[in-house]
Each structure stands twice: as structure tokens, then as C-alpha cells.
């Protein structure tokens, strides 16, 4: 577990990995978007607006996956005191919040022509909005307590907040099953997919592409924090003479 605790060893892997994740990710998401826009057929009911699926679903996945990452990092920080976990949590927060916002916005744009409304307070939408506010709270708490925190990561209090907030993730996932909602039920389950294969395949490309890109962004933000730590440590040593 602590094999990558050493920032130098982590950076040795993170430096080349950033590019390896970024460029294939970008390529895949652009290819998937192009296929989703121009290659796949229109939906029998929704027509062309079904194409929003190929970006709305990855955005939702990253928003929820990002908070899952924050929770795992928080557990590693609190239990094993892994020094890089606090940095990882801080690095995930901003892109996670962004993709949650993108999910809400694309969902709203999709809702107008299909459902006839920009926004309704149903279980899925409300719990996703709660996730966005949780991200904002995490970022604010992380920044406010950055001074007590170690090495540019989040403080332990922020990590606890990240762990507590994780309860929202299964609620989002199950919201359309537990409650009557305007949002439709899950299309892709363990039993298979109710999205026809001819419409489904670009989603695989964009899901993988956005995920790789998200990984690259998190690595970039972690590298920025680690580099800043190095500068600050040097400055302190200089100041002490």
C-alpha cells in the first residue's frame, strides 16, 4: 500500500502516465462523440435528442465515480495515513464537481425536448444536485482547512466529510428504483442493456475516453500540488537559513 507513498516514486510513474491517459482519452471521446452524432440512428421515440446520451452518461459516471474516489482516498488517509491520499482527494474534487455540473446541464437540455421541462424535483435530479453541493462543500472545506492539512492535501475533517457524503452515491443510483420519478429507470443492468446495440456502442467509446481523460486531469492536479509542496519546502528551508 505504501509503495507509492514516496512522491518521487509516484512521480516516476505519474509523469509518463499522464500523457498515456490524456491522448488516448481525448481521441476516444472525440471519436465516440463523432460516432454518436453522425453514425448512429435516431431513437424511435426521441429522435435526434437521444444523442445527448453519449455525453450525459459519462458525465454522470464521472461525477459519481469522482466522489467514490474521494471516499476511497479518505479511507486510505484516515486509516493508513497514506500521504498521497489527501492529495488525491483534493485533486479529484474540482473535475468531479465540473462533470456533475455537466451532467445536470446536459440532463436539463435533454429534458426540455423529451419530457417538456428543464427541471423537476424528482428523486434522481434532486440527489444529483445534492452531489454537486457536496462537491462544493468539500472544495470549500478543503481550501479553508488547507493550512492544517499536510502537504497540500485535504485535512482529516474534510476526509471525514468525503466519507460521510458517499452515502449519497447509492441513493443516486437507486433513486429511480425506490421512488416514482420522471427520470426513467436504469437501462444498463446486470441482465443486459435495454439500449439497442446499434445505439449503444459509441457510449462505450465516450465512457472509456472520458474516464481516461479524468484520470489524466487528476494526475495533472496531483503533480501540481506535489510540485508546489517542493517549492514551499525549499522556501521554508531557505527562510530558516
Amino acid at each position: 500500500m505504501h509503495r507509492f507513498a514516496n512522491p518521487a516514486r509516484f512521480l516516476k510513474i505519474a509523469r509518463p502516465l499522464t500523457g498515456w491517459l490524456f491522448w488516448p482519452g481525448l481521441l476516444l471521446l472525440l471519436a465516440g462523440s463523432a460516432c454518436g452524432l453522425f453514425v448512429t440512428p435516431a431513437d424511435y421515440l426521441q429522435g435526434q435528442t437521444v444523442r445527448i446520451l453519449y455525453i450525459h452518461v459519462p458525465a454522470a459516471w464521472l461525477g459519481m465515480g469522482g466522489w467514490s474516489g474521494i471516499a476511497i482516498a479518505a479511507l486510505m488517509q484516515l486509516v493508513w495515513k497514506h500521504p498521497l491520499a489527501a492529495v488525491a482527494g483534493r485533486a479529484i474534487a474540482a473535475p468531479g464537481a465540473l462533470f456533475t455540473a455537466i451532467c445536470l446541464m446536459t440532463g436539463s437540455i435533454w429534458g426540455r425536448p423529451t419530457w417538456g421541462t428543464w427541471w423537476e424535483w424528482d428523486g434522481r435530479m434532486t440527489s444529483m444536485l445534492v452531489l454537486f453541493f457536496l462537491y462544493l462543500g468539500y472544495i470549500a472545506l478543503g481550501n479553508a482547512s488547507a493550512r492544517q492539512a499536510q502537504q497540500g492535501g485535504v485535512s482529516n475533517v474534510t476526509a471525514i466529510f468525503g466519507l460521510v457524503g458517499a452515502i449519497n452515491i447509492p441513493i443516486i443510483n437507486r433513486s429511480v428504483v425506490w421512488w416514482n420519478s420522471l427520470h426513467q429507470g436504469p437501462s444498463i443492468t446486470l441482465r443486459g442493456s435495454s439500449i439497442d446495440g446499434s445505439l449503444l456502442w459509441p457510449l462505450g467509446l465516450t465512457l472509456l475516453g472520458f474516464t481516461l481523460l479524468f484520470g489524466a486531469i487528476v494526475l495533472m492536479r496531483m503533480r501540481a500540488i506535489l510540485a508546489q509542496n517542493k517549492v514551499e519546502a525549499r522556501m521554508q528551508r531557505l527562510a530558516r537559513g
Binding site: 490524456f22 435528442t49 445527448i52 455540473a101 455537466i102 437540455i109 472520458f210 486531469i217 495533472m220 508546489q228
Partner: peptide, 27 residues
């Protein structure tokens, strides 16, 4: 609607990528 949704997504993704990359390179 489709174009608006893709524009929002691609703009947001591009901005966070560029900002993160520049912050990393500077640091």
C-alpha cells in the same frame, strides 16, 4: 438541443484540461 449539450460538455472538459495542465506545468 443536441449541439448545445455537446458544446457545454466539450467546453467544460477543455477548460478543466487546459487549466490543470497549465497549473501543473507552472508548478
Amino acid at each position: 438541443f443536441v449541439i448545445a449539450a455537446y458544446a457545454v460538455t466539450l467546453a467544460g472538459t477543455a477548460i478543466v484540461s487546459v487549466v490543470s495542465w497549465r497549473a501543473m506545468r507552472g508548478a
